[in-house]
Design a protein around this nucleic acid. Sequence first.
DNA 1: GTCTATAGTATGATAGAC
DNA 2: GTCTATCATACTATAGAC
Lengths: 196, 196
Amino acid sequence: MTAEPTPTRREELLRIAARLFAEKGFRNTTVRDIADAAGILSGSLYHHFDSKESMVDEILSTFQEELFGQYDEILASDDDPRARLERAVLVSFDAIDRHHDEVAIFQNDAAYLLTFDRFAYLGERNRQSREVWMTLLRSGVDAGVLRDDLDLELTYRFIRDTVWVAVSWYRPGGRRTHTEIAQQYLSILLEGIERG
Amino acid sequence: MTAEPTPTRREELLRIAARLFAEKGFRNTTVRDIADAAGILSGSLYHHFDSKESMVDEILSTFQEELFGQYDEILASDDDPRARLERAVLVSFDAIDRHHDEVAIFQNDAAYLLTFDRFAYLGERNRQSREVWMTLLRSGVDAGVLRDDLDLELTYRFIRDTVWVAVSWYRPGGRRTHTEIAQQYLSILLEGIERG
DNA sequence: GTCTATAGTATGATAGAC
DNA sequence: GTCTATCATACTATAGAC
């Protein structure tokens, strides 16, 4: 991890794999697909990685570490509840922008990967994510900024779903920046679509 | 289609297949899985169906026909814009409740299936769905019921995403009915989560 | 309507040469 | 670091007996 013999090649292969996993799904991507895209033969991949699972493992765990570091920063900050909620939404859309493939893989294949012991940490991350959002929502309600008649569990799910599923249609470099999308979403979430 | 020799057995097999496709994904479900669950051998399935694709085809097309019939009813009604939007959301959550497997399959596997010519109608249904929601939103804005500063395209995507992705966590018979969930969601969508 | 048996193909992974 | 060659397994689908 810290002193890889040939970090560049390894990372390049991971990037290629991530792209394919995101596009076609983990199970639907063969090691031959990855090797083809990299311009080598499938057997050669095993010089770099133990297995296909090792690849997706490294892709996801690296990404999650960064993302949850950002959530932790928000929770540790002394911003007011509304600002913290906004930052959390912005950070998430930023992840969709900068780590599109990783988010897509997590969205599409986490349920399957979770059936293996080595990916149990993905379930732990899910719980951690729930804690982040629930904490933000609760402090918003406590501070009187958010409605107190909401089912917070449902509210959390709606926020989580809407934010992350955007990876299925958002494309970096498209008509709207991820920041514009995040702000439009926050406007709907906070104020609703009804007039008045 | 209209005068099947043994409609009951066929439908039973489709129900079993739908359950498995929804649980594990279309590609990740083998014909042996389906046959095992039905208590027969894999070869016997081909007495009833041409292929695995034929099965998912019949499952999805039947479901879509019903769902879009309901949307058409809403569009044809003379309810006011707000009521029509509410009905569309309720009908969608109702589909998640009554056709859980079908919605899950469509959510998870439509992108893959769309790569085959025979599933082109799924893309057509996607366009149709967009038309339904955009029509509802536009008439809401025109009637002065909805905010006129919204990016309707984004608003449509947020609504669609949040509604349908609920199939990933909603379980019939759970703590909240699908109607309660739909109403809570409508409340957030229309009024926002901010106090005031 | 289901079984036996199997064809033909694709997959993840390995061993050893270069 | 990549290639050649291949193993063992799993898959969809078919043919014909019962």
